[in-house]
């Protein structure tokens, strides 16, 4: 359990020029604290948080690695949060995303990559992801924050609650699978990237997507292994960010996401309280009432 001041002191250390170590330790503190114990101030200078999501094997890590290149070559300081699943049995994890990004980190002192294990949270992100992203934003060290989710299917849409922009990565030839993700992930996506565009069926996939999502919707193609199409993807992300920052678009977007984030934290809080209220033999409605009352009472104390 860590105090607020601990995290702030580490951030201050980082800002004093003590290097990535202090920032990395602050992330560990946030990662190891339940979300309701971490209250970070709202960043004054917002940084675009990009969620990169899509089915397993679509090339998210490889694409993220290439995006590091493209952003860094354009002079941007890049942070990457790469999320991999924790084993539901042991609680452990093998985090392999860094492996695919390693070659893009050589000699780049202002790129920061952190792997996070999902630690039992659902929705293809880790429970602490939002707070870790906010911490990166607060550090003032980055111009863009890329979050690569666990391989996601239809319903893993939690990334939408914390990223400003969702880029959904898919591949040609998934056919019905494209239909399948339409209902869930597709609804929260701000743009779709058809990766492995040198594979047969790429053009059809793009056409299908344009038909179902409408002509205004941004669909682009990449060959992540070769870096093809990645500069265009960055341009689209930058354009979206500029649009969001005009007027109150970003403020409204973030307020909406903040409300849903609060709902998620509340849910986790109620669950943590509920785990301790099991001793009584109540009927269902009374048990629910009891849990909610207890959760509210504990929250205020």
């Amino acid at each position: 359990m860590y105090g607020q001041t601990d995290i702030e002191a580490l951030l201050a250390e980082y800002r004093e020029g003590k290097g990535w170590g202090a920032l990395a330790r602050a992330i560990t503190r946030v990662e190891n604290s339940p979300p309701w114990q971490v209250e970070l101030p709202t960043p004054t200078e917002p940084v675009q948080v990009v969620g990169i999501t899509g089915p397993p094997g679509a090339g998210k890590s490889t694409l993220t690695g290439r995006m590091i290149d493209v952003y860094a070559n354009a002079g941007a300081r890049v942070a990457v949060l790469a999320i991999d699943p924790s084993s539901p049995i042991s609680g452990g994890a093998v985090l392999g995303d860094r492996l695919r990004m390693e070659t893009h980190l050589m000699g780049r002192e202002d790129v920061f990559v952190r792997s996070l294990a999902s630690r039992g949270s659902h929705g293809a992100i880790a429970g602490a992801t939002r707070n870790v992203a906010r911490l990166l934003e607060l550090s003032g060290a980055f111009d863009v924050i890329l979050i690569e989710t666990v391989g996601a299917g239809q319903t893993e849409v939690a990334i939408a609650e914390l990223a400003d922009t969702i880029a959904l990565v898919t591949v040609p030839g998934l056919g019905d699978a494209v239909q399948a993700i339409k209902a869930g992930l597709m609804e929260v996506a701000d743009m779709v990237v058809v990766n492995m565009a040198d594979r047969p069926g790429a053009r059809e996939t793009v056409r299908h997507l344009r038909l179902s999502m409408g002509r205004e919707f941004f669909v682009t193609t990449t060959i992540a292994t070769e870096g093809v199409g990645v500069p265009e993807l960055r341009e689209a992300l930058e354009e979206r960010w500029d649009r969001l920052r005009e007027g109150d678009g970003l403020t409204r977007l973030r307020a909406r996401k903040r409300a849903r984030e609060a709902a998620l934290v509340a849910e986790a809080w109620v669950r943590s309280c509920a785990d301790e209220i099991t001793e009584e033999n109540l009927d269902l409605n009374s048990a629910v009432k009891r849990i909610l009352e207890e959760a509210a009472r504990r929250w205020t104390t």
């Binding site: 924790s86 084993s87 452990g92 093998v94 985090l95 392999g96 492996l99 390693e102 792997s115």
Partner: peptide, 14 residues
């Protein structure tokens, strides 16, 4: 893999 099965979070760098 053994460390994962023991509940640790292992970053494999390749």
């Amino acid at each position: 893999r053994a460390l994962r099965d023991a509940g640790m979070e292992v970053v494999y760098t390749g």
